[in-house]
Nucleic acid binder design. Structure first.
Length: 648
DNA sequence: GTTTCGGTTCTTTTT
DNA sequence: GAACCGAAAC
């Protein structure tokens, strides 16, 4: 469709139209689930462009890559290719994009490495060990990282958070701080940033570099933020700065769907928006096109217990259909077979597998259903705990690229050498130190020094790496990351994988996929830039778009923003959902309730709440389960209770 | 002194 | 899976 022919009145309802055509200045759009939030944002972009705003002057911020891609695709359909000048992506992406150009102002090299979760964990472990703190009672790297991350994203001191977090644990706060300190120094030495650093340093750019702030303020005349309820302190301040007091800032969110407080999200950002921007225009979207009224009734009822600020009730548009099903089941096995049976039946009625989803609180809840689906040969797609780019074999082959890009990347160096026999952590570290904690594979002299340090036992296949490194400049491989991975795999990794992994075939296929994926990128830098901020969901989302007939299994967190005709929710029982671990020792279950609300509002036609009565425990014992409080809070007449007869 | 191997244990949510 | 731990092997 060409510009200027968009019929906004036709495409939008009154609520949406008002938000889309909101005047300049601060705008807050409270968009309840399924009310066309994405549509509104996309049409807002179109509206702005039609009014003469150039797309390059628009900044569109999202939380996930998926949301960014979806919005940009839809905006392109609406406005045309001119929209490609628009800056759109996750906060991390946008911060990274700026830091690639300006990180040197903050004392980094611009070719810094981005550490993913796994890298950060390794680094924290190393720091702990070096400080000789790794005894049994010392917090695990994961725990420390989430603490440091929370401190970073809430701008609170680690000390205070650690004191309350480890109030009852026999841990010295000084030690926690010492590890934190070591971790921070280490990242500096590696010329690396973790995910939080991207946000912290992105914010520092604006706080400390007035000229830069001016530059970007001028550039971005309009800023749009999606899922604003999930911003943390850093992100909110970053947005406030770039918008400026007079800025045209439009934020969209739903305080009912704030489910990321554990990583620092603070829904007070959305609540206090009108106070921070006194001339805010506020709009509410409550007309729901997604779900049948029975499902919305359930959604409205379950969230009523939460004392949120912006009260709103979802208004149904669709015709009445049928009530959500409360399935009382004996155990996980019966739950699994119930779902499989229902899926077959629904398929018979004409639903496709991709119309259905199984949602759960935690990844491990999906174990039994996975087994059952495999057994019954029902194709399924799971967005599992391990991200595509964090799998061992993917990290192995990209380590070569990382070291080429950043010769100070100790983690990549360790990983590469560790693939050769007799080169473990200790030996590798000695070599690294002997090389002056730097290894530039592109330099002949540097390669020779490394070569001289490799012990005889590890020589086998060593020249594969040497040759590859020598090829890089000769064949200008820095422009072709896929070719580097390909050569590394053929000359070394294929054989290594086959003797290391039981499922080498599958892993080598993954590497093939990875090589295909690299063709989108023009250089090693380009590729690495993207990979660290990418989850597996995009690779899988593409598979879904290609029409693969499969049942989707997903955590509720990952399902946010998506919808299916049929939704099954697993383990709606006390202890599992709400999760005991998530509740900790607080009585505040409001975020778990919001999560339940998110799960319920994913469903368009039919919703199944599965409540097993017992759960097999690790030690073989049986744990009796109570139905989740979230079910008890809803009037029974809003549901239809089913006790499937397994012999019927 | 290091690496490797085999068994055990544990999984909250993500950029 | 994959991280962790202890024991055997280099």
């Amino acid at each position: 469709m060409a510009e200027g022919t968009i019929d906004f009145d036709q495409a939008l309802n009154e609520e949406q139209l008002a938000a889309v055509q909101a005047p300049d200045g601060p705008v807050l759009v409270i968009a309840a689930a399924g009310t066309g939030k994405t549509r509104t944002l996309v049409y807002r972009v179109a509206w702005l462009v039609q009014r003469g705003v150039h797309p390059r002057n628009i900044l569109l911020l999202t939380f996930t890559n998926r949301a960014a891609r979806e919005m940009l695709d839809r905006a392109r359909d609406l406005v045309g290719d001119s929209v490609s000048g628009l800056w759109g992506g996750t906060f991390h992406h946008m911060a990274n994009r700026m830091l690639r150009r300006h990180a040197n102002l903050l004392g980094y090299e611009n070719d810094y490495t981005i550490l993913d979760q796994d890298d950060s964990k390794k680094l924290v472990r190393t720091c702990t060990q070096e400080l000789k703190l790794g005894d049994k009672h010392f917090p695990k790297p994961d725990v420390l990282l989430s603490l440091y991350g929370l401190a970073a994203s809430t701008e609170r001191p680690v000390e205070a958070l650690a004191a309350s977090r480890f109030e009852h644990a026999p841990v010295r706060i000084e030690d926690i701080l010492a590890v934190h300190n070591a971790y921070e120094n280490r990242k500096r030495a590696l010329n690396a940033m973790d995910f939080d650093d991207l946000l912290i340093n992105g914010l520092r750019l604006f706080r400390e570099q007035d000229a830069l702030l001016e530059h970007y303020r001028d550039r971005f005349e309009h800023i749009l933020v999606d899922e604003y309820q999930d911003t943390n302190t850093l992100q909110a301040e970053w947005v406030d700065l770039i918008a400026g007091p007079q800025g045209n800032l439009l934020v969209v969110g739903d305080d009912f769907q704030s489910i990321y407080s554990w990583r620092g999200a603070d829904f007070r950002n959305i609540i206090s928006f009108p106070e921070r921007y006194p001339n805010t225009h506020m709009y509410k979207l409550v007309t729901n096109y997604r779900s049948v009224p029975e499902i919305l009734g359930m959604a409205n009822a379950c969230i009523a217990g939460n004392p949120e600020q912006f009260q709103k009730t979802l208004k149904a548009v669709r015709e009445p259909y049928q009530r959500p099903v409360l399935a009382q089941l004996r155990d996980g096995r019966e739950q699994a077979s119930f779902i499989v049976d229902r899926v077959w039946e629904l398929r018979r009625q004409g639903y496709r597998l991709q119309d259905m989803v199984v949602l759960y609180r935690s990844h491990f809840h999906a174990l039994e259903i996975q087994m059952e689906l495999s057994e019954k040969a029902l194709p399924y797609l799971i967005t599992s705990g391990v991200r595509f780019f964090e799998q061992v074999h993917i990290k192995d082959v990209t380590a070569v690229l990382r070291l080429l890009q950043n010769p100070a990347d100790e983690l990549a160096f360790q990983r590469i050498l560790g693939m050769w026999p007799r080169l473990g952590p200790k030996t590798t570290l000695k070599i690294w130190n002997a090389l002056g904690r730097r290894c530039d594979l592109r330099k002949e002299a540097s390669r020779q020094r490394l070569d001289a340090k490799i012990p005889a036992a590890a020589r086998e296949g060593w020249n594969a790496l040497e040759c590859l490194a020598a090829d890089v400049d000769r064949d200008s491989l820095l422009q072709d990351p896929g070719e580097i991975i390909h050569r590394f795999t053929e000359r070394f990794y294929r054989a290594y994988a086959e003797e290391t992994f039981e499922n080498a075939d599958r892993r080598l296929e993954d590497i093939g996929e990875l090589i295909n994926y690299t063709s989108k990128f023009e250089s090693v830098d380009d590729f690495l830039n993207e990979v660290a901020l990418q989850t597996n969901m995009d690779a899988e989302a593409e598979a879904v778009e290609q029409g693969s007939e499969a049942l989707r299994l997903s955590t509720i967190h990952q399902a946010k923003g998506l919808e299916w005709r049929i939704v099954f929710i697993l383990w709606v029982a006390e202890g599992l959902f709400p999760s005991t671990r998530a509740l900790g020792d607080t009585a505040d279950d409001s975020e778990e309730r919001r999560l339940f609300y998110v799960a319920v509002t994913r469903a368009k036609d039919e919703l199944y709440l599965c409540v097993p009565q017992v759960r097999r425990q690790r030690d073989g014992g049986m744990q009796f389960l109570q139905p989740s409080r979230f079910i008890g809070e809803v009037k029974p007449e809003l549901m239809r209770t089913v006790k499937p007869n397994r012999w019927g």
